[in-house]
């Protein structure tokens, strides 16, 4: 479990992470979502004790990362794919990491096989494609068989097959009871992978809820109805307590699901030409949510300026 509490990081006047608090629970995939520059990577670096918070604290399994006797056995992290020396082979990279935390060397070949890099284990990583680099990064994260896995933008540079592999792997790790924390700037990716969602924009938490709640709250859905007896149908559904909006020759119905609409209309012997559940895309919902944070942040800044006077 990762607990983030009141975490703040300032670079001079710029606030990268602003009083952020959330919990990443065990046994599920928590998506950490935000546009580029929202503070995701900065937060993850502070989780790993790489960057010093300006204020607040982070604990992993109840203690600070740096207090762990063998951090790679407790937390596995994919940082940036570039955290490698191009002149070193994949196996040697894993070997020194294993040595630093007394992880048996046999584990090196295990993880190489797990990520499908056993054939290029001896190749210098400078020759790796972006996708191979990401796979090696994931091998690094899994090296210590850690109960907490932190992946920063793991699907960057992966082909569709690789993306699906990461998705399945993340789900499997969570099923095994591990804490999985994945950052992404792609809502569509998170929708398929995460159970829980923490949305960050301009360094502030915008949403911290289950994926289902997020969809219910932010992705508006309605039932699209087309009928030759539009007026009668509209009256009928309003009578049943639905919210009906006529749009062109359609009716947009909220408050009743498609089955209920169909049954009500059928009971009255009216005709339907179309009955469709329409969801606005999660990507749209995410954009709306994060664009709002821009305004919020601008307002907050004016407040601070006032306070300084």
């Amino acid at each position: 479990m990762i607990s983030v509490s009141g975490l703040t990081k300032k670079y001079g006047d710029k606030v990268a992470v602003d009083d952020v608090s959330f919990t990443v629970a065990t046994g599920r995939v928590t998506g950490f979502l935000g546009p580029n520059g929202a503070g995701k990577s900065t937060t993850m670096r502070m989780v790993l004790g790489l960057d010093r918070p300006t204020a607040g604290s982070v604990t992993v399994n109840g203690r600070r990362y740096r207090d762990s006797p063998a951090p790679l056995r407790e937390v596995g992290a994919l940082l940036e794919a570039k955290a490698l020396h191009p002149g070193r082979s994949a196996r040697d990279h894993l070997r020194w990491l294993a040595a630093s935390n007394r992880i048996p060397t046999s584990r090196v070949d295990e993880v190489l096989e797990l990520v499908g890099l056993e054939a290029v284990a001896g190749t210098r990583v400078g020759k790796f494609s972006l996708g191979m680099g990401q796979r090696l990064g994931i091998a690094v994260a899994l090296l210590g068989d850690p109960p907490v896995v932190v992946l920063d933008e793991p699907v960057n540079g992966l082909d569709p097959e690789g993306i699906r592999w990461v998705r399945t792997l993340a789900r499997q790790l969570a099923t095994e009871g591990r804490t999985v924390f994945i950052s992404s700037h792609l809502m569509s990716e998170m929708a398929l992978t995460a159970d829980h969602l923490v949305v960050i924009g301009r360094g502030r938490i915008l949403a911290d809820c289950s994926m289902r709640e997020f969809i219910a709250e932010h992705a508006a859905s309605y039932v699209k109805v087309r009928s030759p007896q539009r007026g009668q149908v509209a009256d009928l559904l309003r009578g049943a307590g639905a919210d009906v909006t006529p749009v062109d020759d359609e009716l947009h119905v909220q408050g009743l699901d498609a089955a209920a609409v169909g049954e009500l209309v059928g009971d009255k012997g009216l005709y339907l030409h179309e009955l469709t559940l329409v969801r606005s895309s999660l990507e749209d919902a995410f954009m709306t949510l994060t664009s709002a944070s821009v305004e919020y942040s601008a307002r907050a800044r004016t407040d601070q300026a006032g306070a300084l006077r």
């Binding site: 479990m1 065990t26 046994g27 399994n61 762990s68 006797p69 063998a70 056995r73 407790e74 630093s100 935390n101 007394r102 295990e110 797990l114 210590g144 068989d145 850690p146 109960p147 907490v148 099923t175 095994e176 009871g177 591990r178 804490t179």
Partner: peptide, 24 residues
């Protein structure tokens, strides 16, 4: 992988891999 359990309710000891003393 040492963990093979498939159940969603699995309780994984967060420090099961962690040696009592620092690697040094």
């Amino acid at each position: 992988m040492t963990v093979t359990a498939e159940s969603r309710t699995v309780e994984l000891d967060p420090r099961r891999n962690v040696p009592g003393t620092r690697p040094g």
